[in-house]
Write a protein that binds this DNA or RNA. Structure first.
Lengths: 218, 218
DNA sequence: AGAGACAAGGGGATAAACCCTGTTCTTTTT
DNA sequence: AAAAAGAACAGGGTTTATCCCCTTGTCTCT
């Protein structure tokens, strides 16, 4: 197989070591060519616009700083529909998978799969346009693709700030002071978020924040 | 370089894709030989005992199910002091680094480093016995190596169970019911943990749990 | 017999959670 | 241009949960 007929891949992952290793793995398969790496969505946008050759598939990590996988997939699916997105993540929960597919990803791969599965997934995404693992039914993909992210989960800036502060040991009173708002306003934020996100208490809010990467441990 | 003179490496990581990719990267360096993979500490223990050839270095992931990197390093440092441990993690916080070094790791690598750094780190661990990155001073390593894990952070089984339940939306009363204990006993657990782990409230406990992988999102 | 752990209790202060009401604003409708 | 609707912010009051004292009984171990 000559370089011309090889499939062009781009890797977007903030872990350089993983990205570099993955490139070696892809090379070892013999039928893929890695065009470039990017360390987040914003970096990818820049490099893609400057690139002479366009990729066939983007291997996209979900958890990244600056611009995460969800945003990046959302952007790419409106920017160039022909470039396929294969999401890479350690999360196997339905919510994350669905969210990624809603953002326009053509496939979803867990990082704990066997390397051979990656080759299989890449070829299937290139040939069929999507990859359905055991976990993700193709029908599910069809029905959810048009709809974008849940509107009730769209957060305002102050809500994001409040949520991340709620993930600390601060009391609501202290959070109110920090945000220069009345404790009663914070009480309103809390109540509003509890009902919108369907959670029952502050622990639920912390878990939600961590699930959706609104707060990061350490 | 013949196979005999190559350095033997073992990769312990629950992400098969990463482990497999990493192997290709190590092979591409030409001076390393990957003996086997393990998907967690327990798996590693088994395979190590059965292995004909002993590794020079173990590349050890920290976040793993069943038996994590801390436990594994702790075990290996008492089982075979001559096998070097190079910890691999995405966490760059001091607490995690120090904890890992206290558990007997000979070096600590972040997953977002450049692949060439891995080669450098491996060779240094093999030749010098340790690897000091920019973040970890060699002196720090020296002073902390003999001491094992903080005894006050060693948790009893019921404490672990309580902590993971405290990461849900359950009230303490509900947790007490689930554990077949009086709410007052739970109150005792809570108070004891707050002072031992130096945290102020339930959110602090949730954050601690997530930091130390006592509870996993999703 | 005393030390140390574990489980459980009483009582009380503070924080969290849930009501419902009211004031400014801006935006939308008529 | 006036009226209606919808936000963001803030208040009063109440219940429940959390958090923090300090004390007691019951085991086990040495």
């Amino acid at each position: 197989m000559t370089a011309k007929t090889k499939h062009n891949i781009v890797i977007v992952d903030d872990h350089l070591l993983f990205a570099g290793s993955l490139e070696k793995l892809l090379e070892s398969f013999g039928e893929f060519n890695v065009l470039f790496h990017a360390k987040n969505g914003a970096d990818f946008q820049q490099k893609l616009k400057l690139a002479k050759t366009q990729p066939d598939v983007v291997l996209l990590d979900i958890n990244m700083p600056v611009m995460d996988g969800f945003e990046t997939a959302n952007w790419l699916s409106s920017y160039r529909k022909d470039i396929k997105v294969l999401a890479l993540s350690m999360d196997d929960d339905e919510e994350t998978i669905l969210r990624m597919l809603r953002c326009g990803a053509n496939g979803y791969l867990l990082k704990d799969i066997h390397p051979d599965k990656l080759r299989e997934a890449l070829l299937e995404v290139i040939n069929k346009g999507y990859y359905h693992s055991e976990k993700v039914a193709a029908t599910l993909l069809q029905s959810l693709n048009p709809t974008q992210e849940k509107p009730e989960h769209r957060l305002k800036e102050n809500e994001r700030i409040f949520i991340s502060l709620a993930c600390t040991e601060m009391t609501y009173k202290e959070i109110a002071e920090k945000m220069n708002l009345s404790p009663k306003t914070i009480d309103g934020y809390r109540h509003e978020l509890f009902s919108r996100l369907q959670i029952k208490n502050r622990v639920g809010l912390v878990i939600y924040a961590l699930k959706h990467d609104l707060y990061r441990i350490q």
